[in-house]
Computed example of a mutant assay.
Amino acid sequence: MKNIMLINGHQAVISYDPDIGMFRGEFLDLNGGADFYAADVAGLQREGQLSLSVYLQECTRRGIEPRKNFSGKFLLRVAPEIHETAAIAAAACGESLNQWVSDAIMKQARDAAGLSHAK
């Protein structure tokens, strides 16, 4: 996987912070902040598990749903030329523009995460 670490079933995006010389992990599927820092992979695993555990315990204590809910809807603004080209490509594939864009996003997301291309 590219810059993604799986910790207890949750994906965390990993980046490097040159200002402090450490790696930063951030869980993006959670409603609140549960990020963590470490100098190496083993430390990221350890600190990620700790951060996630504390976050989930606090959510339980407060009666908060820990995971973000994604509606499946978002607004996308593109140049008119891109809109036209995508609409033509979708029609050529026999798909709605929505389905064509959805498939394109899924392919790019799986590529970025290093996942298989199976639907």
Rank of each mutant, 00 (worst) to 15 (best):
L56S: 02
D35H: 06
F74L: 06
V78D: 05
G63H: 13
A92T: 11
G48H: 03
A34F: 04
L76N: 07
R24T: 07
R62W: 02
A92W: 06
V54T: 09
E84L: 10
H10C: 10
C59Q: 05
A34S: 08
I82T: 15
A12G: 10
I14K: 04
G33Y: 04
E84W: 11
E47K: 08
G63P: 06
I14V: 15
R61H: 12
S96N: 11
A90I: 12
S53H: 08
N69L: 05
K68F: 00
D19H: 10
Q49S: 12
P66T: 11
L52K: 02
K68C: 06
L28T: 15
E65V: 10
G48Q: 04
E84M: 08
R77G: 02
A91D: 13
G25R: 01
Y55T: 07
I20G: 06
A42V: 10
R62A: 11
S71Q: 08
A12R: 04
C93H: 15
G48E: 02
T85I: 10
F74M: 12
E95Y: 13
F70P: 09
P18H: 12
G94N: 12
R67D: 09
C59Y: 00
A34N: 08
R62S: 12
H10W: 07
L50A: 14
G63S: 13
L76Q: 14
L56D: 00
E47H: 06
K68T: 05
L50N: 15
H83W: 10
P80G: 05
G94C: 07
